[in-house]
Design a protein around this nucleic acid. Structure first.
Lengths: 208, 208
DNA sequence: GCAATAATTGCAGAGACTGCAAAAATGCAC
DNA sequence: GTGCATTTTTGCAGTCTCTGCAATTATTGC
């Protein structure tokens, strides 16, 4: 780990404010529904002005989803797939996703609450899919790297094959998470991971 | 084909108005960009009041995408997969998609223009993905049917495997279309279909 | 033609979001 | 701690999307 550059008061406050907004957003939407929650209400509970809300988030939906710095996540994903120790592509993709999103998903009440909201409100799901779509190309690029390193015979069309591979794995993670939520969000990350891999394998067998 | 029940003036006008709105929306967005185009401008060109615009479409994006009756499409998809003559699941899914969306996509200038817009504007893409996501469960159900009929050994988890299978095939269709657009939208539907199948096969081989 | 039904419209209003410039908070050098 | 530069917050005015409601107009079946 590189030295944390000793965040000053200004930065710490910013992070804290951001979290306060996210929490307020999720709480109010949980209580009042997606349309019942207004930016005014959220700002009010977070103790900021409505104008400041939009300094932190582009939209109400982003605040609810807690859109984090996607650049950060992108770099983590690329690094994760590239440095995977396995030669198994499915395992490389899925485990990278779990390394990155797993801790987010399972540890805090906020994240669990948020995931439930996403299942409940199609509009949020759509926005989240949009975020993931932006990640897909990064992941696909990392997968092409992966293939370049290990396979002697590359697919004829590595970029496009990589995109489909990513779509497949992402779908299996999404479905494992969906079931995790349906089960009351009790199981641990490892079992989600295993389930996700299992689903992918079964699907491949079925499709072949 | 069942007799068309001889649409009256009222219904014909409605269909025509709907089309005028879609066309106006696509034209103006093409010219002015997604944010440059307002509902007022679109309504104006379509010769209706802004209020009427919202009688036809829930949002600006829907007008641009020309959201058609999804119930119709859902039934067509279910029927298509169920009645596929092949035993090859990938072929069944992909060819059904092409049967339904192919004619839409390739025949008219409007549709081609629309597809270009979707590639260009991430916000539209995510909205469209969202629409497809809603189709996914219908398709997945049809796939489970398909598996029930043909496979002696069902996957342990047919519903979820079906969802992932659908996601995989949809992704390959999406990417084939994307490349079709990139190539200037010149190739025919058959070559898109073959390309889509080919991509899926290559991906499966790579992932196995 | 006439009544029933459906489509269009205007209007008023809520809510999301933006640009701008003033005010407050913070960081840093002295 | 004082003063100055930089950020952050905020208020305000304004645009745009979208909704409910009630009046108006068009289509239909009789």
């Amino acid at each position: 780990m590189p030295d944390t550059p000793a965040l000053g008061l200004r930065d710490r406050k910013r992070i804290e404010t951001r979290l306060r907004i996210e929490t307020a957003a999720v709480d109010i939407v949980t209580a009042e529904g997606l349309d019942g929650a207004t930016v005014d209400m959220i700002s009010d509970r977070a103790g900021i002005s409505p104008r400041t809300f939009f300094n932190y988030f582009e939209s109400k939906e982003d605040a609810i989803l807690g859109t984090q710095d996607m650049g950060e996540v992108q770099r983590a994903i690329a690094a994760g797939v590239a440095s995977a120790e396995t030669d198994d592509l499915v395992a490389a993709i899925v485990s990278t996703m779990f390394q990155i999103f797993g801790p987010m998903a399972a540890r805090t009440q906020l994240k669990a609450q948020r995931m439930a909201l996403v299942q409940e409100h199609p509009r949020l799901l759509s926005r989240q899919i949009h975020q993931f779509t932006q990640l897909n190309s990064t992941m696909a690029a990392a997968v092409v790297e992966f293939l370049n390193k290990r396979e002697t015979t590359l697919p004829r069309d590595p970029e496009h094959v990589a995109e489909i591979a990513v779509a497949t794995c992402v779908a299996s993670v999404r479905i494992a998470v969906k079931e995790w939520i349906a089960d009351g969000a009790t199981a641990d990350i490892d079992s989600m991971y295993l389930r996700s891999i299992g689903l992918t394998r079964e699907t491949l067998n079925t499709l072949q």
